[in-house]
């Protein structure tokens, strides 16, 4: 744990030193979240779902993919694998800081929402579940997307499709009435975040949200475990 903590602290320092990363991981999601709080939108499920999906999607998915690819292409991952840190610890230490910042932003958004007079959720436990499930989704998706991303700059492009799917699914499921086939949209990546936001504000529990919460991280995690590259050099077969 000491090694992971040391790496997390070091990566946090680097985020603060790198303006591009600081903007995508912290400033843009923070600004969007605060804007949503004070936008006078009268749908709390929409506001909460957007805040969760932007903090996790931009901060952890896009930022995490950028960091993983940058560390791989500059052979930092390879060098660190020669130290005492485990492979799992190395990944946690590399993506962890973006996750810590995203969780910090979500705590701030919660406080702002209370101050702005957003109604309190009736089933508040659904929100931490949305955040944890969303975190599992974006972290494993970052690992999987890093496989097909040749450079940190290209991460801005390779993350776009899934980022839009996650945002769109979360928003649509959060605002479309849960009845009949639209319920199936919760099965899309990010759909569970929208569904759980709605559940937090009184909608009935849907099994699709729970299935989506588990299936996508398992799928992306499996892809990453099979194909993740630690080094810019080709891997032998």
């Amino acid at each position: 744990m000491d090694r992971i903590a040391a790496l997390v602290l070091s990566e946090l320092t680097l985020i603060l030193r790198n303006r591009t990363l600081l903007t995508s991981v912290l400033i843009v999601p923070l600004a969007l979240g605060v804007f949503l709080t004070f936008s006078q939108i009268d749908s709390p499920t929409y506001v909460v779902a957007m805040q969760v999906v932007f903090a996790l999607g931009m901060g952890v998915y896009v930022g995490g993919t950028q960091t993983l690819v940058a560390r791989r292409q500059t052979r930092v991952l390879k060098r660190f694998r020669t130290s005492g840190i485990s492979d799992g610890g190395l990944l946690v230490g590399t993506v962890g800081p973006a996750a810590v910042l995203a969780l910090g932003q979500l705590v701030l958004f919660g406080l702002f929402d209370v101050v702005a007079g957003l109604p309190a959720p009736g089933a508040p436990l659904a929100l931490p579940l949305a955040v944890l499930g969303g975190l599992a989704l974006v972290t494993t998706a970052a690992l999987a997307t890093a496989i097909v991303t040749p450079s940190a700059e290209r991460a801005q492009i390779t993350t776009l499709p899934l980022f839009f799917v996650v945002v769109a699914s979360a928003v649509i499921v959060a605002v479309v009435p849960a009845d009949g086939w639209p319920d199936l949209l919760a099965l899309l990546p990010g759909g569970a975040i929208g569904a759980l936001s709605r559940i937090a504000y009184g909608a009935p529990w849907t099994p699709y949200a729970l299935v989506s919460l588990v299936v996508w991280p398992v799928l992306f995690g499996w892809l990453a475990a099979r194909n993740f590259r630690w080094d810019a050099r080709l891997a032998a077969v």
Partner: peptide, 28 residues
């Protein structure tokens, strides 16, 4: 075992001292 790679492997934004201190925390 200690390994020197052919190239790269450093975070360019860290200072030399920070690099070695981090290495000290990661090394066995």
């Amino acid at each position: 075992m200690g390994i020197q790679l052919q190239e790269g492997g450093f975070v360019e934004e860290l200072t030399v001292r920070e690099t070695l201190e981090l290495w000290g925390k990661l090394a066995v």
